[in-house]
């Protein structure tokens, strides 16, 4: 096993031993339970596309809908927050605890340490996102049952509007795709936290910095004034996953959004690497 693979293994081992890593998983499990409990009482209000505005026969509330709804309500805040709690802590906490000092006094390159930590962050982000979807689907299926996937498009993100109903298997496939896209979206915020983490010794600064960027970009997206640059803001692309729940799927837009999100992640990864390679470790 080469040294980078060894380091990735060690980073995942460290993540598995830290209580903080389980904070997001526990929170997502709790949120899934909360959503299923809410759905069991009746359909939710979804932006301008309230299902109460339509005449529906039978129940569309099931495990698939719970997973879809979970993604819709957590992607813009909760999921990035719990991702940043870990990615923003990856380097800064080691710097604060002095373990970075011990780690970097070993015969390993700074680049390999940084890359191993980033790859571990990607794995954690993907695991958290997929865990969230799986938890919502399983809890929803247990308490609400299974069946066709019904989704509601409010038209704000990808322009589509209305109700879309998919057979169960197709719905699951679309959910898997949506959650994979969501992991990409959340990683872009996580990468900002990781970048800040490479510069500071306080993980709160890294988490707060990334979340402030997320909120600031979301606010900018609400104003006409910022419209010319809106398509360059990663927040404008985070909800493109909803395109996977219309027919036909707007692949072009989803691809463009995925590329923008990847560019953000790659950009902040590279910036962080440049900083980390040259930084004096004084803590």
């Amino acid at each position: 096993m080469n040294i980078v693979a060894k380091q990735i293994k060690l980073e995942i081992f460290k993540l598995s031993r830290r209580g903080r890593s389980y904070l997001g998983l526990t929170a997502m499990l709790g949120l899934a339970g909360l959503i299923v409990l809410g759905l069991a009482q009746g359909p939710p209000q979804i932006g301008g596309a309230s299902p109460q505005g339509f005449a529906t026969a039978g129940s569309f509330l099931n495990g698939g809908f719970a997973a879809w709804f979970m993604l819709r309500v957590t992607l813009l805040f909760f999921l990035p927050l719990f991702t940043c709690v870990v990615t923003g802590d990856m380097i800064s906490s080691e710097s604060a605890d002095g373990t970075l000092r011990t780690l970097l006094s070993k015969p390993v390159s700074r680049e390999s340490v940084y890359c191993a930590k980033y790859i571990a962050s990607i794995i954690y982000t993907a695991a958290l996102t997929l865990f969230m979807g799986t938890a919502a689907y399983i809890i929803g299926s247990i308490f609400l049952g299974r069946g066709s996937l019904t989704t509601f498009q409010a038209g704000t993100i990808i322009g589509a509007q209305g109700i879309y109903i998919f057979p169960e298997t197709e719905g699951i496939m679309r959910l898997i795709g949506a959650y994979m896209f969501a992991a990409l979206a959340v990683l872009s915020v996580g990468s900002i936290a990781f970048f800040i983490s490479s510069m500071v010794s306080n993980s709160l600064g890294a988490i707060g910095g990334a979340m402030l960027t997320l909120i600031a970009f979301q606010i900018m997206g609400m104003f006409e004034f910022f419209k010319p640059i809106n398509s360059f803001l990663f927040t404008a692309h985070m909800e493109s996953w909803s395109g996977l729940f219309v027919s036909p799927i707007p692949w072009g837009q989803i691809f463009k959004s995925a590329c923008t999100l990847c560019a953000y992640s790659a950009g902040f990864f590279t910036l962080g690497l440049i900083v980390f390679r040259r930084r004096d470790i004084l803590s």
Binding site: R18, G19, D97, G98, T99, T102, L103, S105, P107, R110
Partner: peptide, 21 residues
């Protein structure tokens, strides 16, 4: 650094150790 530190053991200031391990 890899070659330079390959045969070196170090204790730099107070030991930086993983408290949760």
């Amino acid at each position: 650094r890899k070659k330079a530190l390959s045969r070196v053991g170090m204790l730099v200031e107070s030991p930086g150790l993983y408290r949760y391990l």
